[in-house]
Nucleic acid binder design. Structure first.
Length: 227
DNA sequence: GGCCAGGACACCA
DNA sequence: TGGTGTCATGGC
């Protein structure tokens, strides 16, 4: 099976099993951006607590985060871990939004994808994955997010090496699938949904068998278009 | 008590 | 360019 067929097959199976996910779990594009930073190396349950803290403090806005003293912001995002680092990252993100776009996210979204990506990567605390989270889920640009779940799944399916570079994995999806933000959104959301659902202690469970994966059997797969 | 979880930065060779 | 240490909480 060619890579394109394999990727489409995986998508079809996940969609058939889990149904449409309609991600990201947030009420506004700005909340998506904040969540993308807070979820760095953290479980989503902890991120939800931090987001709830920000909402309860009426601090889930670019202006509020910019004006809030660092210790106060750090205490609000405390449950998501790395609270000092993440408070600094959120302030850097909000400074960028304000200085570059006057906090107008619609205006920001109208910029070309590749230019936005470069801008975002120049903001402190925003790397490849966080930039792509923001581009896809907050701004609805057609770009595929490669996270730990995606990386692990691709490795287990024999599509990519475990240590494959971010750009390599992203190119795999971007070159083999049509550039459609809705599909990229749904596909990545399904991968996350599946990864969270997969039972680590029972490799034989139904969620694992959806994709014919043996979770314990990490292969020596390499990125190879001929596979 | 130890391990793991949807990263990114700073520093060094 | 790639490897390593650091940042830190919460669940199991």
């Amino acid at each position: 099976m060619q890579p394109q067929e394999k990727l489409i097959d995986i998508y079809d199976r996940l969609l058939a099993h889990y149904g449409p996910q309609s991600w990201w779990p947030a009420e506004t594009p700005f909340e998506v951006m904040v969540g993308a930073v807070l979820t760095q190396a953290a479980s989503w349950t902890n991120v939800e607590k931090a987001l709830t803290n920000l909402k309860c403090a009426d601090a889930l806005s670019s202006e509020a985060i910019r004006e809030m003293p660092m210790p106060d912001l750090a205490s609000l995002v405390y449950p998501s871990g790395y609270y000092n680092s993440k408070a600094r990252k959120l302030k850097a993100l909000c400074d960028y939004l304000h200085e570059r776009y006057g906090d107008d996210i619609d205006k920001m979204a109208r910029r070309p994808t590749h230019e936005l990506r470069i801008e975002l990567l120049n903001v402190h605390g925003i790397g490849d994955e966080t930039a792509d989270d923001i581009l896809l889920y907050a701004l609805e640009h057609p770009i595929f997010v490669i996270d730990t779940y995606t990386r692990r799944l691709m490795h287990r399916l024999g599509i990519a090496a475990q240590d494959a570079r971010y750009s390599e994995l992203q190119a795999l999806f971007m070159s083999d699938l049509p550039p459609n933000a809705k599909h990229f959104n749904e596909y990545h959301a399904l991968i996350v949904r599946h990864s969270v659902a997969v039972c680590k202690k029972k490799p034989e469970c139904a969620d694992c068998s959806i994709l014919d994966i043996c979770p314990a059997g990490a292969s020596n797969a390499q990125i190879n278009p001929s596979q």
